[in-house]
Simulated assay, not measured.
Amino acid sequence: MRKNIVAGNWKMNKNVFEAQQFMFQLLDYKRNNATNCEVYIAPPALYLMMAKDLYKANEIGIFSQDMSEHGSGAYTGEISAGMLESIGATGALIGHSERRQYHGETDSHCNRKIKLALDKGLTPIYCNGETLEQRKSGKHLEVVKNQTEVALFTLSAAEIKKVVIAYEPVWAIGTGETASPDQAQEIHAHIRNLIADKYGKDVADEISILYGGSVKPENAKEIFSKPDIDGGLIGGAALNIVDFSKIIEGFNV
């Protein structure tokens, strides 16, 4: 059975005092409210240890915003899968559109990172999605197909079941634009069908696929109600405890 997930990507936001305040607020919320989803945060790397020390019972998943494609070595500024494993992190975001845009990451890079993460028992959240130009030209299904196949289809069936996928239309990240629930559902179903064709329906039905494009408290419930959407990778709205908690409540019946 696949999981419902709400994951907050803080990106490059919050000083240490703001980060600590939010972590305590989220912990208080989680302990005092029934939630129908797993809750993850991806704070800046500086705060991973602080988060892990606070969430000792693993009640909130702790994710790095990126991870190196190398196991170790002379790679200044990088964070390895082994380092994340050693602090008890839950996993890492891999292939976020901002990493692709600003750091030249490709699906081949993502494939190597995913394999390293899985080898260390970490959960990769693999991000993919099309640009506005690709959407307008009608290539969005082909783009997402290629991204999915290159990054994931060298994995075994047992391995791919441990991956979480986050579909994030690049044109809807930080723009205030949002794919309609039906547009998002179309791509989520497309991804799940691609996996079913390769690995079988039983495997595809176990994989959580999140939507990552300007999810807000106002639209979370409708988006999460779609049959192939299993939650959200949240950006801006994950920085405010009121908004983030309301999105979490999008799964409440």
Rank of each mutant, 00 (worst) to 15 (best):
E159W: 02
E222T: 14
G231K: 07
I94D: 00
L155F: 08
R100K: 15
G213L: 01
Y199L: 09
S225C: 10
G232E: 03
L210W: 06
A184V: 03
I125R: 00
Q183N: 11
Y211G: 08
A92R: 02
Q147S: 10
A220Y: 12
S108R: 14
L233Y: 11
Y211R: 08
K113D: 00
S214G: 09
P181C: 10
G176M: 04
L194D: 01
C127I: 00
V215N: 01
S156Y: 00
E177V: 05
G212M: 04
E206L: 13
L122C: 07
I173K: 09
E177T: 01
A151K: 00
V170A: 01
C110P: 05
T106K: 11
E186I: 10
K221I: 11
V143A: 13
L210F: 03
E105R: 04
T154C: 09
D202E: 15
L118N: 00
A189D: 06
S156Q: 02
F153M: 05
Y167S: 05
L210N: 07
I195F: 11
I187M: 15
A172M: 09
H96Q: 04
A92H: 02
I114Q: 03
E98F: 01
G231Q: 12
I187V: 15
G200K: 14
F224H: 14
Y102E: 15
R99A: 05
E177L: 13
A172F: 11
K198A: 10
G176D: 07
A172H: 08
K161L: 00
D182V: 14
Q134F: 05
P169T: 05
K113Y: 05
A189L: 15
A158R: 11
K139D: 15
A189C: 12
N193R: 14
E142S: 13
A172D: 10
I207D: 05
L210R: 09
T175V: 05
I160G: 06
Y126N: 02
N146Q: 15
R135A: 12
E105K: 01
N111S: 11
E149Q: 15
V164H: 06
T178E: 07
N128R: 09
G104L: 13
I229M: 07
K136M: 12
I94T: 04
K198D: 08
G174L: 08
T175C: 01
K145C: 06
Q183D: 15
Y126A: 06
S137C: 12
A179N: 05
D230Y: 11
I165T: 06
R100F: 06
S180C: 09
L116I: 00
V215I: 15
V163P: 12
C110W: 00
P169D: 02
L118D: 03
H96M: 06
E149Y: 07
I207V: 09
Y126D: 02
I207R: 08
N128L: 15
T175D: 04
Q185W: 00
G213D: 11
L141Q: 15
P217R: 13
T90I: 02
S214P: 10
I207H: 14
A89K: 03
H96S: 05
V143G: 07
K120W: 03
Q134V: 04
I207Y: 08
D228S: 14
L93P: 04
T131N: 02
L122S: 03
I207Q: 04
S97E: 04
I173V: 14
L132F: 13
E177A: 07
G95W: 03
V144Y: 05
K136W: 01
H140T: 06
E133I: 04
A157P: 08
R135D: 03
S225Y: 09
S180P: 09
E149C: 08
S208W: 01
A196L: 12
G138Y: 07
I229V: 14
